[in-house]
């Protein structure tokens, strides 16, 4: 009879724990240590000082981000207020011919009332309660929309984390990805 999953994983873990000792010991003895030794000091951690003090001001960050994003082949627009968002997003999605939209389960996105401004689209909200359905919806949606956790001006990147309300699939599976970046979350590096 086939092993249950738990039994399988436990067996593998047992093997692995046994091997870990030998594996690490091999490394330590080759490095000339009898045992692991204490926590090593890592004085030159991270980027050099001249870099960690590098900062662009607010305006420069926005311009730099947009330049980089465009250079990488993306589209970007700058809006003065949140109020402008629904109109711009609606226009964009219509221009791109999107027929379906999936959004993260974020209150800021709910406030934008996509269902109302784009009634002709099929709308889904990411829900961790029904993962199978959510995945299918994401894989079939033309567009995914999320609010970025952060953005980085120097490289032109948006930073997304995942959680119960923020599925990885929303920013991954649809052909179109729209990230809303609150400017105050835009860092230099």
């Amino acid at each position: 009879m086939a092993e249950s999953n738990l039994a399988f994983l436990n067996r593998l873990e047992g093997d692995s724990r046994k091997q870990q000792q030998a594996f690490i010991q091999n490394i330590a003895s080759r490095l000339g240590r009898l045992n692991e030794g204490g926590i090593p000091e890592h004085p030159l951690k991270g980027a050099p000082d001249f870099w960690t003090s590098y900062e662009l001001d607010y305006e420069e960050r926005i311009l730099r981000f947009m330049d980089n994003w465009r250079a990488a082949g993306g589209f970007t627009e700058r809006l003065a207020t949140y109020d402008e968002l629904p109109v711009v997003i609606a226009r964009t999605l219509r221009e791109l011919g999107a027929q379906s939209l999936i959004r993260q389960n974020q209150p800021e996105l709910a406030q934008l009332e996509f269902e109302r401004i784009l009634p002709e689209l099929q709308h889904t909200v990411w829900s961790a309660d029904k993962p199978q359905q959510a995945l299918v919806a994401a894989s079939q949606a033309d567009a995914g929309i999320a609010i970025a956790d952060y953005a980085v001006a120097y490289t032109g990147s948006v930073v997304m984390t995942s959680s119960k309300d923020k599925g990885r699939s929303v920013t991954l599976l649809p052909n179109i990805f729209i990230a809303i970046v609150p400017a105050e979350r835009l860092k230099t590096r």
Partner: peptide
């Protein structure tokens, strides 16, 4: 130079997150 320490740290932290770690000599 401290691979014994860092690899061990990596493995324990990964396990703590629910990752199954295996070794391939």
């Amino acid at each position: 130079a401290h691979l014994d320490f860092y690899l061990n740290q990596f493995i324990e932290n990964a396990r703590a997150q629910g990752v199954h770690v295996h070794f391939a000599p």
